[in-house]
Design a protein around this nucleic acid. Sequence first.
DNA 1: TCCGCGAGATGTATCGTTAAATCTCGTGGC
DNA 2: GCCACGAGATTTAACGATACATCTCGCGGA
Lengths: 338, 338
Amino acid sequence: MITMSDVARAAGVSVMTVSNVLNERTNVGADTRLRVLEVVEELGYEINLTARRLRSGRTGTIGLIVPQFDLHYYGELASRISEALAPEGMHLVVEQSGASRERELSALSLARLQQYDGVLLSAVGLDMADLDRIHPDVPIVLLGEQAVPERYHRVRMGNVEGARLATEHLVGCGARRVAVLGGKTSAPHPEMATYRTDGWSQALDQAGLPHDPALVIPLTTYSIAEARSAISAAVDGGLEVDAIFAVTDEVAIGALAGLHDAGLRVPEDVQLAGFDNLGISAHLVPGLTTIDPDHPTLVTEALRLLRRQLKDRTADPEHVVSGARLVARGTTRGRSAP
Amino acid sequence: MITMSDVARAAGVSVMTVSNVLNERTNVGADTRLRVLEVVEELGYEINLTARRLRSGRTGTIGLIVPQFDLHYYGELASRISEALAPEGMHLVVEQSGASRERELSALSLARLQQYDGVLLSAVGLDMADLDRIHPDVPIVLLGEQAVPERYHRVRMGNVEGARLATEHLVGCGARRVAVLGGKTSAPHPEMATYRTDGWSQALDQAGLPHDPALVIPLTTYSIAEARSAISAAVDGGLEVDAIFAVTDEVAIGALAGLHDAGLRVPEDVQLAGFDNLGISAHLVPGLTTIDPDHPTLVTEALRLLRRQLKDRTADPEHVVSGARLVARGTTRGRSAP
DNA sequence: TCCGCGAGATGTATCGTTAAATCTCGTGGC
DNA sequence: GCCACGAGATTTAACGATACATCTCGCGGA
């Protein structure tokens, strides 16, 4: 391994001068700078980021912690963030916390957090108390829906509003019995599913429709496979619905398959709406009606909050909520979106 | 920040003893060990991985570099690898190289590679010459299909064989004009698309079917959206086919939508087969016939090759090819898979 | 002539940990 | 009673970079 002192020796200057050149600091003569750069090139020297980090604290790397790589939502999120950071010379690495409280806590250990200049955390397994226990010296922005202590900076979607829009749309398209797939009416701590179920519930109230508890179909992993079998089972079990609000697009994809298994047509027999507006959702057959949570704003805002903390550790925490917009497609019988 | 010497002072021992305790080394008395652990707990001390890495070289972290987070294949890959590493106490972080040569090279800079104990590289933008130029001191295993210098350890799928199986299956189900979506007949360097096109081509030869160059529909990003519009455009342009072999499932999903746009039914008018057996493929409507590249083996073998290099830097390079298996589902008219 | 100044370069201490060498005893063999 | 031995603990010197203080000069002003 070639170090800075190898370069310094070869260029006939001090280590400090090499460091100054590479960090574009002042007080280096033009000719010296050139000589150093030549030698760097010639020896193929590259800086040791570990050493720099230990000494200076800066890493140039942002960490994103997500529950699962293979939920499409997180893949898209990671991709967007990575692209947004690239032009600033920052660099994203993604870790999977595995959706369990235990692994999420381990991903949030000081040891692991220290490795980043900042962390974007999309937690699901942690509750308020866990988050309260963590006092990292690294800027963190929470992405997500669960309740969090005030001191955290945070960006989230307009869950209740979005779910209400989706459900209203289903009702507006003639639905009278709207199930919520992945719904959750009570939980020790509010989270994505409870908020979206609230929105569903509000829309039903507003429309004067009853909400039969049988219409809430719970899920635990929110995977396509689980959603599919849940829907199949529900229909086989005699559940009668004319519409389904799926709490995520991933779940809606499973519902599409499950309804097909049960011999029901979408949207003729049962209408369907999701939430997230995944890239794939526009390309399903039929196209999935869904809620667009305004991904670009989510990303922009999350990075803005992060940069703000990077500049000023004591910046006041901010909670940002992105707007929700309905995207009507083939799984519902309404007119197309504007 | 609390350091080891804070712990040492509080426990009335030397820093080295704390280090010995935390690293479970011998020559520490039982009572001393307990006292140290108590103090660690009490102060909430966590090791500084950066310092450890600088001194010892070990990081406990494996890097996975993929072109795009939002291609479903890579999300699933990352998830599988992450789960496989967890029980060994190793830890996966994923980076996106953005599919461009430039960004891929930057992800492979010594500086970035040094951060990991080992690297799994799923490169697409790099050619043989680029890979030949890189001489990292970190164990690398290449995952993927392009031609690579002999000295690299590598795991890949049975591309040609798989593509042949898929195409044979289509032909066996009565297809006579089989297009290859995402196909590429010539390229400066062989890659995923060329190998799979070769397999398609072999199957046609074997069946005595001509391969009209118009049947090769090229793509550049292999995204769902691109595939969809390519198929729409091809059909609108007068292309007549009774089957499509899509080089990836992602592309097949786009084809499904594109065929629907063109008013063609699957599998009645046009049969369809993909490659990769993504998680979602079983849950499309109709279910996607595809090639299963044996993901578990791919992951197991990749990690085996990595561990082998971790143990012995000079281990002879190995090239592993996983087996391909047809999974017949609703997009083709054959009997179901065994 | 002398001093102050600043550009250009260097020296030194340090970040927090670990490898390797060293020190300190109590014990058992002869 | 002496010495070898090894468990238990400590000391020392890095790992490769950077922050900060310092040094050297040539030059212009008093």
